[in-house]
Simulated scan of single mutants.
Amino acid sequence: MSDRDRDGAGRARNARPRDGLGRPLPYGETGVERQPEGVVRGPEETVREAQRLLDAGMPFHAHEVFEDAWKTGPAEEAGLWRALAQLAVGLTHAARGNAVGGARLLRRGAAGLGGGGVAYGMDLGALVRWADGLAHRVERGERIDAAREAPRLTGG
């Protein structure tokens, strides 16, 4: 492998396998299949797929699903999906043991959701409370298991 893996168009792409929290593994090891980039999904499908990944303890991968919605969806919804991606990355960092980064991203994502409301079946106020509570626990030094701490995006 070269120092910088490249795709067919010559863009840098890290081809190293990754674990469920998105951490690179050594070349040749078996990792978790990556999420394809740029997938266009409807909002409900985005929420379902992200929840599946969160429940599986793969918040890094859920963040990629939210990022697709943020980048391919309507501009007026970009803030919602960006905030949800930040929550997923915050959970990722918290589960990796990065308390500072985890708490910071959880709070940034919560701030991006605003005071509450409902979007695509998601109680945004409940997600803000979840993120705030988890950020406090992370800062106190609690060990975080990504699957056990995964938020319920919808009531279902």
Rank of each mutant, 00 (worst) to 15 (best):
G155L: 15
R143H: 12
A78N: 08
V65G: 00
G10Y: 11
P43L: 07
D5E: 09
A88H: 01
L127D: 02
D68M: 08
A69H: 02
M1Q: 07
N98H: 15
E76N: 13
H93S: 07
M122C: 14
T154Y: 08
L127A: 08
L87C: 03
V100E: 14
L53F: 11
L54G: 01
W81C: 06
D7W: 11
P151L: 10
L105Y: 13
E37L: 01
W81K: 10
E76D: 14
G90C: 07
D68E: 09
A88K: 01
Q35H: 09
R16S: 08
G109F: 13
G116Q: 15
L153H: 05
E45M: 03
E29F: 06
V32I: 09
W70V: 04
L105E: 03
G42N: 02
V89Y: 03
A147G: 08
M58V: 10
R6M: 03
A12N: 02
E77D: 11
G90H: 06
L87R: 00
A15E: 03
G156K: 12
A110G: 07
P74C: 04
M122N: 09
A62S: 11
A131I: 12
H63V: 15
Y27K: 05
L105T: 07
R16G: 03
R140H: 14
W81V: 10
A111C: 04
P43M: 07
G114A: 15
A111S: 11
A111I: 06
E76K: 14
L84N: 01
V65N: 00
E67H: 09
A69Y: 02
N98S: 15
G116Y: 14
Y27E: 15
R34Q: 05
E149C: 05
G116C: 14
R48V: 06
D145W: 13
E149H: 03
Q51R: 05
G133V: 12
R129P: 00
H61A: 14
E77G: 05
R6T: 05
G109K: 02
A50R: 00
G42T: 09
G10T: 10
R6H: 08
H93F: 11
M58S: 12
W130E: 05
L91C: 07
A126M: 08
R129T: 03
Q51V: 09
